[in-house]
Amino acid sequence: MIATGPRATVQDLGRPGHAALGVGVAGAADAGSLRLANRAVGNPEGAAAIEAEFGGLRVRVRAPGGLFAAVTGAPAPLTVDGRAEAPYSVLHVPDGAELRMGAPPSGLRSYLAVRGGVDVPPVLGSRSADTLAALGPDPLGPGTVLPVGPPPDGVPLLGVLPVAPPPAGDVELGVVPGPRADWFTRDALHGLFTGEYEVTSEIDRVGMRLSGPRLARAEKGELPSEGTVAGALQVPPSGLPVLFLADHPLTGGYPVIGVVASADLGRAAQARPGQRLRFRPRPAPFLGAGPDDAEERA
């Protein structure tokens, strides 16, 4: 690693299954883009790759015969020893060559996968850096050396990957109301789904602070801490929501008014400061009904 942008980390699909230890899932903020980059170079979908925010990456490859690589997510302009290469396609980086990633014209997080995957030692079954829990590999910086695993059985894809870059304008995201939508006024829910929320400069892998219509609470009590999920729109006393991303805390004590649909979470993670988000209601999954549910409604 010769240089990085504001933040670059190793990510895979995270470490679910350890909540009892106080450990969250983490993993790529835009998991779809990670999967795609891995498929492109013939890796298993969950292999570890580099998640780079705002580009800025400079990497020198040291591998006999060079390395196959692919960049997805934010379409950062690429050069290999000064020669322009396209994102969303498989490129070959010769031994000793420098791969440079410029600033992406849209989107926030680029995924650089190499054939064989980043082979740092796993922690609790994952190579993901959890920046909140300080678990997994340290964030990357100049001088970091990342080992690459043996080539997988899969073959690299040829041609350009069929994928659209993250939008540069407004971003529409589906949101399932709840689990604590009933803690808010009707006006708040209306405001959430009709207003626009701007992504502030306070963004990291834990979440992004949004500015827009304040969401007023109807229920003034204290919520005992409960489990939170990536995509949750948690509303602190300010009334301005925080959209949780991959490294969100396991539990939180502020009510969650809605949760971004899992299919839209990657696009949420690609929104950058100044971009506007519009939330659209999505139906909750059907969960059936138990006797107590009816009682609660009565």
Binding site: V176, G178, V260, S262, A284, D292
Partner: peptide, 12 residues
């Protein structure tokens, strides 16, 4: 017991 949706990929 009350079961609530927590997005489309979790239940509370």
């Amino acid at each position: 017991m009350r079961i609530l949706p927590n997005g489309d990929a979790a239940i509370l």
